[in-house]
Nucleic acid binder design. Structure first.
Length: 298
DNA sequence: AAGCGGTTCAACCGCCCAGGC
DNA sequence: CGCCTGGGCGGTTGAACCGCT
């Protein structure tokens, strides 16, 4: 006997979401928060599967999502993370604020995969497609290796930075085609205050030392942070959601907090009723923004 | 302008796992 | 301990879009 379907298939609408449905879902989530997804369609007046509602919200409607193509730095980070984590898109996405696993997965399959193949790199193993190109001393990180290394975050013999360097150096084209995070970018990407002792000093020592970063040279503290599966706090890329501090994205384009919540500001510009959010006044919208911002800071 | 093939990405599917009972 | 449910995950699909002929 098969598993019970997540919802009654009869009368459940499938396919692309309409603006009207989006409005209803946004309305409901902003009013009630994310609760039992199975109950959401009924309560929100949607003829959709609860699962579909959750997906629509998490992958498309969430106000903290960044839209548009991944930046070079994000792309590079995805490649590095994929080399170690494999197709664990949610883990990868957890390190990229404002990006969803679905988005990253799609981007990988449609863009990055092709780029890597074009460069002669196997997108699965991250090894050169032509093995003869690989020098005996060159160590490439494969997903399998990474999973074992992830179990030994704190005492791996080869530093992550070295490994990354080797990965990078094994394929010079990679460095060229994927403008690795500049030292400035990487230092700006320093993770939030680490939970482990010692690491703060590591951070302090390295944050202003460009000599430590060539190409994609990331320090151990950062990488152990990245590999800590228990900590899903997003890596702070140069995007922040601090409304007081307009900041630079990886491509040095001013990227403000407002950019990421532009849809809510559109509500202000055009009137929330235009978005079907009649039930909210401006104060409520701003409260929502506050809550969302707090969530991102945590 | 129309037809065609390739590409993109939102959405779906089915499986898995954790937690509650 | 086993069953049930909710939610998360990765893989896949297909409609929409785009560029070329």
């Amino acid at each position: 006997m098969g598993r019970q379907p997540c919802c009654d298939k009869l009368g459940v609408k499938k396919g692309p979401w309409t603006a009207e449905e989006d409005k209803k879902l946004i309305n409901f989530i902003l009013t009630n928060g994310q609760c039992c997804w199975r109950a959401v369609p009924k309560l929100a007046g949607l003829r959709r599967c609860g699962k579909s509602c959750r997906l629509r919200w998490t992958n498309y409607l969430r106000p903290d999502l960044k839209r548009g193509l991944l930046s070079d730095a994000e792309e590079q980070l995805v490649i590095d993370l994929h080399a170690r984590l494999g197709n664990r898109w949610s883990k990868i996405a957890a390190r990229l604020p404002g990006r969803t696993d679905n988005e990253i997965k799609n981007h990988w399959n449609t863009h990055i995969k092709k780029k890597l193949i074009k460069m002669g790199i196997d997108p699965i193993t991250h090894e050169p497609l032509n093995k003869s190109d690989q020098s005996p001393n060159t160590q490439i990180i494969t997903p399998n290796q990474s999973s074992s290394s992830s179990n030994n975050n704190n005492n791996s013999d080869i530093s992550t930075a070295e490994s990354l360097n080797q990965t990078q150096s094994s394929s010079p084209e990679t460095a060229n085609s994927f403008p690795a995070m500049s030292s400035e970018n990487v230092t700006n990407n320093s993770p939030p205050p680490p939970t482990t002792e010692n690491s703060s000093s590591v951070n302090d020592n390295q944050s202003n030392d460009p000599s430590l970063i060539e190409g994609i040279n990331i320090d151990n503290a950062l990488m152990s942070y990245l590999w800590d599966d228990t900590d899903v706090t997003p890596l702070e890329l140069p995007y922040t959601y601090n409304c007081d501090q307009p900041c630079l994205s990886s491509n040095n384009v001013a990227n403000t907090w407002e950019d990421n919540y532009s849809w809510l500001f559109d509500c202000e510009d055009f009137g929330i009723q235009d978005f079907g959010l009649d039930c909210f006044n401006d104060i409520e919208i701003m409260n929502t923004l506050d809550v969302l911002e707090m969530g991102n800071k945590e």
